[in-house]
């Protein structure tokens, strides 16, 4: 295959991505390619830049891109404002979901979904239609209907916030979902529910990047590829067995290898 043909097939192509915050370089040349239907796990020690990568893909304004490019569905992702990315199917499940006081979960989700639908050329949903859809989606993550009218994430426990992220993913039906440590702070039951939710939403035409610190989640969401991020670079990539290897040996070996 020649280059252009390859390009058309990629959903996401990250090329030599460098990003810094407050003058400090965090991402130092990331290369990563994701195809439709794939699940990629990004693992790595704390502070290695996993969340930075996730936030940069979602368009967080605090990060400055100093080098490289990101092509998403053939478009220059980095030139799109965050809301445009979301409309076009990019979804980030935040490591730390934000509380929005005074705005109900349903207002919020309906506003987002209708924007996405407009972008996709679909009719917007009215309050009743939306409520029906929301209730179906809440079943996927086993969320109590009382969360419909509660202010977004306010007073939610850590686990409830993470479930709410997956609920949003279920409602918005993204093409590229990036889950940033969705497993952290979850007990075994919640972990199962969240993972099952993610698996239910998996389709041949969408893809998922699962950022995690632990192997545990990958027992539930089985990745096609595992990448190890250390110090702003992907230092090793492999199949799902790489995760087990990391679990057994820790990050130290890889870290050492990376620093040489």
């Amino acid at each position: 295959m020649n280059d252009t043909q390859m390009k058309d097939e990629y959903m996401l192509e990250i090329k030599n991505l460098h990003a810094s915050v407050a003058g400090k370089e965090i991402l130092r040349g990331i290369n990563l390619t994701v195809n439709a239907g794939e699940v990629h796990a990004v693992m790595g020690p704390n502070g290695s830049g996993k969340s930075t990568l996730a936030q940069v893909l979602a368009g967080h304004p605090s990060y400055e891109i100093t080098e490289g490019e990101v092509i998403y569905k053939g478009k220059n992702l980095l030139e799109m404002p965050p809301e445009e990315r979301a409309k076009d199917g990019v979804f980030l499940a935040f490591q730390y979901p934000v509380e929005i006081p005074g705005v109900s979960n349903s207002y919020f989700l309906k506003a987002g979904l209708n924007e996405v639908r407009k972008y996709r050329g679909l009719e917007t949903l009215d309050a009743l239609q939306f409520l029906k859809l929301l209730k179906e989606k809440m079943k996927i993550v086993e969320m109590d209907p009382s969360f419909i009218n509660r202010p977004v994430n306010e007073g939610f426990s850590g686990g409830e916030k993470k479930r709410n992220e997956i609920l949003q993913m279920a409602v918005l039906e993204p093409t590229l979902a990036i889950l940033d440590e969705t497993d952290s702070g979850l007990d075994i039951d919640a972990l199962r529910i969240v993972s099952e939710g993610v698996n239910t939403l998996k389709r041949p035409d969408n893809a998922c990047i699962v950022v995690t610190h632990y192997q545990r989640l990958l027992n539930y969401i089985v990745p096609d590829f595992v990448h190890v991020l250390v110090n702003g670079r992907i230092v090793k990539s492999g199949g799902k067995e790489l995760a087990l290897e990391l679990e057994a040996n820790g990050y130290d070996q890889i870290k050492e290898a990376a620093t040489v």
Partner: peptide, 17 residues
């Protein structure tokens, strides 16, 4: 940013907040 990451436009996000 959270609202925008959920496809809500700048203006609507400000209004919603």
């Amino acid at each position: 940013f959270y609202l925008k990451s959920r496809a809500i436009d700048e203006e609507a996000a400000r209004d919603l907040l």
